[in-house]
């Protein structure tokens, strides 16, 4: 990765300033600050009527996403549909002018991304999602930085899920292949024992075989009771494993249904899946 980059340029972080934007959404109520509120009777994750964008123009227009416990939800759609933006909005990385985000019965609309991690969200960015000079094991340790208890058990679980990581645990993550690096990234996010794991195009740039393997692992993660929200370019394969699929067009929900329903829908097939 680094060999193709210009050595004269800086390379650090994933160039997404919104991740570190302190204070979460712009519509912060000073009274509530960083507290989450109970919001009973909602799905495990409810991101309702999200409207907003990075600057003056809105990218999302009343987008709604729901994920039930232990289920896999996939966001698909054409380029520029706001798929990643929708996920970043769920994670508190951009301004929401309207709407709310509820996780596990708590309204977290006003929390910063870091606070959302503490509340049980795990986020795997699309690129630059590992600490390249640190070993695989250290990457996982850093994932567990917020935890003060013994996290060795979680680390063993991650190693069980991705056996190749155990083999390479002393190797710097930057020296691994693309697929292995994605496994490190997912493993790092799992170290906080999240209730909701968000993956931004986890299969971008990996071979079809590795992609299938990653999807299998993601199903395994979901079986342990962790909800998964995923943005995917490989729409067909992703919908096959999805309990719930969202087709976004221009920042709004176009089609919603179970993965199989969407795959069977002739309209969706024709417009988004290429026949």
């Amino acid at each position: 990765m680094s060999s193709t980059q210009n050595p004269w340029q800086e390379d650090r972080g994933n160039k997404d300033r919104s991740i570190t934007r302190p204070g979460g959404s712009e519509i912060i109520d000073p009274e509530t600050g960083h507290e989450a509120h109970p919001a009973p009777g909602t799905p495990f994750l409810l991101a309702e009527n999200m409207t907003g964008g990075y600057g003056a123009a809105d990218i999302l227009h009343g987008c709604t996403l729901k994920v039930e416990k232990g289920q896999i939800a996939v966001i698909v759609g054409p380029n520029g549909a706001g798929k990643s933006t929708a996920m970043k909005a769920v994670f508190g990385m951009l301004k929401l002018r309207q709407g709310r985000v509820v996780l596990d019965g708590k309204d977290i609309t006003h929390l910063s991304p870091q606070d959302r991690v503490a509340h049980g969200m795990g986020f795997v960015p699309q690129v630059n999602n590992v600490f390249p000079s640190m070993s695989v094991e250290e990457n996982l340790e850093m994932g567990a930085f917020l935890r003060r208890d013994d996290f060795r058990e979680t680390m063993e679980q991650v190693y069980d899920l991705f056996p190749v990581l155990k083999e390479k645990r002393r190797q710097p993550a930057g020296e691994l292949s693309g697929g292995q690096r994605q496994q490190v990234a997912v493993g790092r996010a799992l170290m906080t024992r999240p209730k909701l794991l968000m993956l931004d195009e986890p299969t971008a740039g990996v071979s079809p075989i590795v992609m299938d393997e990653l999807f299998d692992r993601i199903i395994e993660v979901a079986r342990t009771g962790i909800s998964i929200l995923m943005v995917e370019q490989n729409a067909r394969q992703a919908l096959e494993i999805a309990d719930m699929g969202y087709v976004l067009v221009q920042g709004a929900n176009r089609y919603t249904g179970t993965g199989q329903e969407l795959l069977a829908d002739p309209e969706v097939r024709r417009t988004f899946l290429g026949g």
């Binding site: 986020f123 000079s133 640190m134």
Partner: peptide, 13 residues
């Protein structure tokens, strides 16, 4: 970690 990837370090708390 912070030196490697500032944003990811922030995400890790």
């Amino acid at each position: 970690a912070y030196s490697d990837n500032e944003d990811l370090a922030l995400l890790s708390g």
